[in-house]
Amino acid sequence: MNPADILIDIFLLLLMAAVAIAIVRSHLMFAVVMLSGIFSLLAAVLYVHLTAVDVAFTEAAVGAGVSTLLFLATLALTHVNVEEKHKPVRVVPLVIVVATGAMLTWGTLDMPHYGDPEAPANKHVAPRYIQESPKETGLPNMVTSVLASYRGYDTLGEVVVIFTAGVGVLVILGRGRRRWRPGVKDEDGDNLEEERA
């Protein structure tokens, strides 16, 4: 293991932790959204460092880009600027969080160490993907061949989820929703029910 690699890793992780705590403490919504964008970008840099280049690409485009855009659009639509009744510290949730964190930390103690090639997660099916997939699919990028070929149904399921979410957003925010509330008057004072009939 290279000490410089470990130092970069620790530095990026500490930066992410600092940004996360800044998000917890901030009550200005614009700052919260911008910090979450920074958080995603830091995550993307960390993924490059951990050699997950495809994931970094997606995180930078989708996590830092599209997500932040969606949050900003929501801020614009709801006209929310600050969090009301901001309480940075609340005792009962803090106790729950610290207790859960302590238990999870205890659970990590017998985990295989970071970067261990003998870890169970890196055995089983992974060596087969690494050795056979360039020959079997003809693609040098193993992530692509696993995504589109070996686990193609996974990706199909992902597309179904995105489609469902898209339909859901359209149903919730689409133009047709006013018809679902008969008897309610719109901005002109016209009864929508009559207007439709």
Binding site: A52, D54, V55, T58, A121, N122, V125, A126, Y129, I130, S133, M142, V143, V146, L147, R151, D154
Partner: peptide, 9 residues
Amino acid sequence: NPLPHVLIL
């Protein structure tokens, strides 16, 4: 290991 990369993607 490419498999976790795919799952997280």
